[in-house]
Design a binder for these strands. Structure first.
Lengths: 146, 146
DNA sequence: CAGGATCCCGCTAGATACTG
DNA sequence: CAGTATCTAGCGGGATCCTG
């Protein structure tokens, strides 16, 4: 196609670039963990005690659907189910159905999921170490421009 | 208020939970780096050579606005400016205006921004190590359910 | 050159109701 | 108990036009 407007060329370049981005492994990982509920589900499944979500120090455990929805107070069933499905699809959690009546479903981190959970802890640690600094900068910036 | 419907109670709990989430440092950090362009700008400013965005091995450098918009092919000016502003606000990049004519503006990573950039590299490395496994799981999952 | 201001559209999260 | 189905509103983000 020799006849291509400048606008068409631009959107072509953009499409290519987007495709490149979508194919980038770190981009994909980022999309995965940036999900609000992914992080929390990982934290919940990665912890073991009765401590609040976000705190995570111990061995992974299996949890029932209803347990998860209680631990992650604000989540809608839709989002919880959707997120769990996608995590299962990625091989980060296992879904086990026990045909009791009524049916019992438990979720557990896989080894892969656990390794990702450890990565999240690193993020958490950076956040705890530097986030106050960021917040300070933010406040200073806002007052400066007043 | 002794008279509160069950629905009101639920939304109250949810509001509290959301507030807790918003206050969580790792949640805030996640919101920051999960931004499509934040990751790319960090990568661009963190690298030094003429290699494509995403590849990053070298010392941080300063870049002009127009350079950035060229390196990050798909970005709109709106998003580029908006992202740069928020990064500046957080103290992750510095914005330097040189009053030439026409005006010249350069951006550079701060030490804080650089340390975050290193964290992003860790994410990148996990992604490169495990993302193919995730993709494999995903494919298997999809064919299984066919 | 480096942005500010506007309009507008698509996607997605959330609420609600129903089921094996 | 552990989901599925549907409908809708809100907003992030792109495109476009304008300026010091």
């Amino acid at each position: 196609m020799p006849t291509m407007t400048a606008a068409q060329k631009r959107s072509q370049v953009k499409a290519d670039y987007d495709a490149f981005l979508a194919g980038c492994p770190s981009r994909q990982l980022l999309d995965r963990i940036s999900d609000k509920w992914v992080a929390l589900i990982l934290a919940a499944l990665g912890s073991d005690g009765p401590h609040p979500a976000g705190d995570c120090t111990g061995e992974p455990q299996s949890m029932r659907y209803s347990e998860l929805s209680r631990r992650l107070a604000g989540v809608s069933q839709k989002m919880l189910t959707q997120t769990l499905r996608s995590l299962e699809r990625d091989g980060l959690v296992t879904r086990t159905v026990t045909p009791t009546v009524p049916v019992t479903v438990t979720y557990e981190l896989t080894d892969l999921g656990l390794s990702l959970h450890h990565l999240m802890r690193a993020i958490k640690e950076w956040a705890e170490a530097h986030m106050d600094e960021v917040l300070g900068n933010r406040e200073e910036y806002d007052t400066r421009s007043t």
